[in-house]
């Protein structure tokens, strides 16, 4: 049966909008590897949901299932109440995936022109260029773009069709802080236009800055779920910085850990129960050094300093 799309006002609390996209008790196995293990997730209209977790947590797998690029081993994936593999659902979604390279010898404007042609009601070129901040780059070959500009083009391609749902898989990976902040502005502008966004990230700061709801996953299961405030309260907003030989993957296994980053030889751990995590880390590594326990917000301080 074919019905017209019903407009949903998110302000009107009496309207119970069905989720726009759903993963229901989904398990996904690749051979012996279980990427998702009974994961359930629902996207409500107009919300930005961040899937937060380390590499290999199953974030990209969840996105691929909702895009119909792969099928669940058990459970169901639905988008607009349909199987995501139905071609018609793809006219109403946009995706920014982790693409290693885009054809290098096409120009920005040509990539946009081609992607627009796939959609029944695309945004105008001028609008795409404006939203993705690609002004003045239309005639530049992809190979001549900077890392941030490349990500902006991929973002532009994701919004070409004026989608209702936008999937962003690690949209800011590999970008410096300023380029990342720029992309954040664009993601916020999507929400302002009433779009539903599912983004994956392994930065707590990013999820905190953008999402209405954060779903922390690890090893294919949901570890924690809530608003950024709830997640931060749960984590008591504390961060460990130290130099340790314990690998990030081992630290992720400790209770209450929500974020692990390794940078410049130091390990940064965000956790609810910092004391318990520290005891375990000290027990695992006699050589652990350079220890600091800090409140987050360092990134903001760093940005203020570098921009000052």
């Amino acid at each position: 049966m074919v019905m017209d799309m019903v407009e949903v006002s998110t302000q009107d609390t009496t309207v119970m909008a069905a989720p726009m996209a759903v993963l229901e008790n989904v398990t996904k196995k690749y051979g012996a590897i279980t990427a998702l293990d009974g994961l359930s997730l629902a996207l409500r209209p107009g919300e930005i949901v961040a899937l937060l977790g380390p590499n290999g947590a199953g974030k990209s797998t969840a996105v691929r299932l909702l895009l119909g690029l792969s099928t669940p081993t058990h459970g169901t994936a639905r988008i607009f109440g349909n199987d995501p593999r139905v071609a018609a659902t793809r006219t109403r979604i946009g995706a920014m995936l982790q693409v290693a390279a885009v054809p290098k010898t096409l120009k920005v404007g040509e990539h946009i022109d081609l992607f627009r042609s796939y959609y029944p009601k695309p945004l105008s070129v001028a609008e795409i260029v404006r939203i993705a901040q690609l002004e003045g780059l239309e005639n530049r070959l992809f190979q001549a773009l900077s890392g941030g500009q490349k990500q902006r083009l991929l973002f532009g391609l994701a919004i070409c069709g004026d989608p209702e749902i936008v999937f962003l898989d690690e949209p800011t990976v590999g970008l410096d802080i300023e380029a990342r902040r720029g992309l954040w502005e664009q993601i916020r502008s999507l929400a302002a236009r009433g779009k539903t966004v599912l983004m994956t990230t392994h930065y707590l700061e990013e999820a905190d800055a953008l999402a209405h709801r954060i779903v922390v996953i690890n090893k294919g299961r949901i570890v924690s779920e809530g608003t950024p405030r709830e997640i931060k309260n749960r984590t008591a907003a504390r961060k460990i910085r130290c130099i340790t030989t314990t690998p990030a993957s081992r630290i992720w296994e400790m209770a209450s850990v929500v974020d692990v980053q390794v940078a410049d030889g130091a390990t940064f751990v965000t956790a609810g129960n910092v004391e318990a995590v520290l005891r375990t880390m000290l027990a695992l590594d006699d050589e652990l050094s350079g220890l600091e326990v800090v409140a987050p917000g360092l990134e903001d301080a760093f940005l203020a300093l570098t921009q000052g």
């Binding site: 019903v6 009496t14 119970m16 909008a17 726009m20 607009f80 349909n82 018609a88 029944p120």
Partner: peptide
């Protein structure tokens, strides 16, 4: 207060 549930459906993709 009445509560309505909004569901979605997808019109088939038709191209000339």
């Amino acid at each position: 207060m009445a509560t309505t549930t909004v569901t979605y459906s997808v019109s088939p993709l038709r191209r000339t």
